[in-house]
Structures are given as C-alpha cells and as structure tokens.
C-alpha cells in the first residue's frame, strides 16, 4: 500500500445555514489521494469543486467530517497553520502574489511558508537569490533577470506562473490548483499548464487540479474526479482514465447523475 497524502472524509459544509439562502455546498464528500496522485476535478457550476479545495486549504471551518493531510489531522487548524503542508494557486492571477513587492520578496515569503517569521533574520538572502534565479529559468519567461521588479508589473500569465513556482518552492504535501488557467488567454493557459506538468512531475507532487476544460481534465493527471451537488460522483483512474474521451465523460455523467451535463461553459471550452 502506498502512502495516503490526502483524506477527505464525509465532509459537510453549508453556507448561510438557517436562512432562506442556505446552500449545502459539500454534501458528504469523500476523496482519498495517494502519494503522487495527480487528480483533475471537473463538474458544473456550484458542484462544490472550489468549496472542496477551500475546505482542504482551511479557508473556513467545515461543519462535519475530517480532513487529513499526510497523516496529520488538520480539520481544526486555521489556514495559516496548514500552509506548510499546502501549495495553492488561485483562479485570479492577482490573488497568489503581492503586487507591491518584488519578485524575490514574493518568493522569499513563499520559501518561508509554515515557518515563524523572525524580526531579526533578513527577508531575502544572497543564497536564496541565486536559487530563485535558477528556478525562474525553468519557467522560461525571462523573469530570472527581473528579481527586483515589482510583481504588479507582470502580466497575468507571468504572475500565475510565478505563483505556481512559489507554491512549490517548499515542496508541499498537496498542491491545490483552483482553475488556475481559467482567467488566462488560451496560449498563456497552455504555457502555464505545461509549466504545471513540469513542476508536478519533477517532485512527484500530489495534486488536486480543478478545471472547466474537459480536454485538460483528460489530458493531465492519472485520475479524474467528477463532482455534482457537493459530492464526488465519478472517480476514473489508471487504464480507464488514459483511454477516456470527452464523449465518454458526457455519457458517464448523464448515466451517473441521471441528467445532462448542464454547464455550457464546460461543453464549449
């Protein structure tokens, strides 16, 4: 048996409970990732994909159930206390970086994820600078020569690539990608996805990647999970995943959930 990296067990989460706007976002989610799993997550709007990622990241406490990362029960920990285990890239390229700070400062902040921040140690050291330069070269965006440039000067694609690098500077136990290419133009999205593949395969990172794009969901990763109404309704892996087509997926969805895959956004992308 290989090591379990992430275990989401019977997780429930309702927003605005007890009000007319009550929405059960997670309705008993179960999902287990083994070490090295690269799982793509698809599902219509409101299926609970982002909510599941936020539950793992600890954006808010869940109502019931439990979440374990690398054998550690993190259910009771706020986001900043779990951060040492988790790398995150957000949908909005503006979210993952600090715009008014330099590229090297952003990377240095990410390198210290999960460590206490001393008022006596320097924010960035010379040694780290060399390391950052090497790592930025992997992205192939010319950022290695702009270490002291403010991140606010970078394009959305560059910022997203930088966020990806920052999320993995300190090898995370689990990498959470929340539609991290959705806000980019197709060409840039492709580049960032290629960078994702590179980074993930280099360190065999255990990864959860939400996407709206079925083709991407099929092309990447070794497992594909489909969500609907706050539950995991499909979990395709191995051989079956490798042979999967978009048509198969649509067919499977309607047979499992008894309805058409309703989101236009998914069909058209």
């Amino acid at each position: 048996m290989s090591e379990i990296m992430l275990e989401i067990k019977d997780v429930y989460k309702a927003f605005n409970p007890g009000t007319i706007n009550e929405k059960i976002a997670l309705d008993g989610v179960n999902l287990t990732l083994e070490k090295g799993d690269f799982v793509t997550v698809i599902g219509g709007n409101g299926a609970g994909k982002s909510t599941m990622l936020n539950a793992v990241a600890g954006v808010w406490p869940i109502d019931s159930g439990s979440i374990q990362i690398a054998g550690m029960n993190v259910t009771g920990l706020p986001a900043y206390k779990r951060a040492s285990l988790i790398g995150r890239v957000f949908q909005d390229p503006m979210t993952g970086t600090a715009a008014t700070m330099q590229i090297e400062e952003n990377m240095a902040l990410a390198l210290r994820r999960g460590r206490s921040r001393s008022p006596f140690r320097p924010g960035v050291t010379h040694k780290e600078r060399d390391r950052f330069r090497e790592q930025l070269k992997i992205l192939d965006l010319g950022l290695e020569d702009r270490l002291t440039a403010k991140v606010g000067l970078l394009s959305g694609g560059q910022r997203q690539a930088l966020t990806l690098l920052m999320a993995t500077l300190q090898t995370p136990r689990i990498l959470l990608l929340d539609e991290h290419t959705a806000a980019l133009d197709p060409k840039t999205a492709e580049k960032v996805l290629a960078a994702t593949e590179k980074v993930v395969s280099k360190d065999h990172l255990t990864t959860l990647m939400i996407t709206h794009n079925m083709k991407d969901a099929i092309a990447h990763g070794n497992r594909l999970v489909m969500m609907s109404e706050g539950r995991v309704i499909l979990d395709i892996r191995g051989e079956e995943k490798a042979k999967l087509t978009v048509e198969d997926l649509l067919h499977k969805f309607s047979s499992v959930s008894g309805e058409e895959f309703a989101s236009d956004k998914v069909l058209l992308s």
Binding site: A57, A79, Y80, K81, A83, S84, I86, R88, F90, M94, T95, G96, T97, A98, A99, T100, M101, E105, N106, A108, L109, A110, R112, R113, G114, R115, R117, S118, P119, F120, R121, P122, G123, V124, M166, A167
Partner: peptide, 21 residues
C-alpha cells in the same frame, strides 16, 4: 526582515499572505 516582509505582504494581499502561512 522576515517579519517586516510578512507585515508588508499582509497589507498588500491578505489571501496571498494567508496561503503562505
């Protein structure tokens, strides 16, 4: 310093700061 940078990051982008622990 590390702490000073963390304060600046907090003022600039809370989500980023939180995600970086």
């Amino acid at each position: 310093t590390e702490q000073g940078s963390a304060i600046r990051a907090t003022g600039c982008n809370q989500q980023m700061a939180g995600a970086n622990g």
